[in-house]
Write a protein that binds this DNA or RNA. Structure first.
Length: 286
DNA sequence: ACCCCTACCTGCTAGC
DNA sequence: TGCTAGCAGGTAGGGG
């Protein structure tokens, strides 16, 4: 399930193959995603050059230039729970749940020429989205209220502590709130809290600044490490080239309920928090 | 304002 | 064997 490291892995994998290329065709096989794929997407996107691919939280932003008008718009993609973007040979068989197909050609190619690559959006559960944004992208309602990027200077050591004052919700819910900080989903929230020994149900407003600094450091380290491993593949995550990630081999608590704590050997406990699997050690996390 | 709950969706597994 | 129920969870929006 794509969290920030998986989305970043996808971005980094696609960028070298997509930037500078032309979208020569767009086919929407099933536009019923979390929000309907805009009817005019193919019209507005076809013929444009991919300028760059950025990421904001778990959203991928493909900046696309219309050379004639010099207009730049953004294809915004969210992978939801089960989505992936893969670059494949144009001739390869389309899989079930390949909902959108973007044909890519070399920038110098004629638009009528056979495409050289295909970028396919695959999403069995259709929790993701593909939307068209006008600049400035950050003012779009889905992006405007997002918290800082955890791997930039915007995520300071004191950010979590300051925002948490007066909050009675459990620290895990607080950490997973995208308005607090983006990109920390269920897996990495479980892992970060284990790393620093904080009980996931502890009231967010009653945690010391010192512990929040340690948590901030842990969040950065875990996300950076997961990116370095190519992300976490639990069921079906694959990067832009269809390859899995390897971070799941380093998970300390997620998916290990009942198994011994890696620090004290006591069996890990699992509870439900807002219907999310929450795994922790009652001895090491207080 | 704050916080919890629900809906969205399909593939997979467990249980009968 | 074949059905059904339950689970997985990112996110926005509704309700208390």
């Amino acid at each position: 399930m794509p969290e920030l490291p998986e989305v970043e892995t996808t971005r980094a994998g696609l960028a070298p193959h997509c930037v500078g290329r032309r979208v020569s065709d767009v086919i929407v096989h099933n536009g019923r995603l979390r929000w309907p794929v805009p009817e005019h997407l193919a019209d507005v996107l076809t013929g444009r050059l991919v300028q760059r691919i950025e990421r904001r939280g778990k959203y991928l932003l493909l900046y696309c230039l219309d050379e004639v008008s010099a207009h730049v718009g953004v294809l915004m993609v969210h992978l939801g729970m089960s989505g992936s973007l893969r670059l494949v040979d144009p001739g390869s068989v389309r899989k079930t749940h390949d909902h959108l197909v973007f044909s890519l050609s070399d920038a110098a190619d004629d638009l009528d020429a056979e495409p050289r690559w295909e970028l396919r959006y695959h999403d069995p559960r259709r929790f993701g989205c593909c939307l068209w944004l006008e600049l400035p992208a950050e003012q779009h309602p889905l992006l405007a209220s997002l918290g800082p990027e955890p791997l930039t200077d915007a995520f300071t050591d004191t950010h979590l502590f300051r925002l948490s004052r007066g909050k009675s919700m459990p620290i895990k819910s607080f950490l997973m709130d995208s308005q607090v900080v983006v990109g920390v989903g269920n897996i990495y929230a479980n892992e970060a809290l284990f790393e620093v020994g904080i009980h996931p149900l502890r009231e967010a407003g009653r945690i010391s600044e010192k512990r929040y600094v340690a948590l901030s450091v842990a969040v950065r380290a875990i996300l950076a490490n997961a990116i370095a491993q190519g992300g976490t593949t639990l069921r079906d995550f694959v990067n832009g080239q269809g390859e899995p990630g390897y971070f799941q081999q380093q998970l300390s608590v997620y998916g290990r309920a009942g198994e011994p704590c890696l620090r004290c050997q006591k069996p890990l406990t699992e509870v439900r928090l807002s219907a999310r699997s929450t795994v922790f050690c009652t001895r090491c996390q207080r």
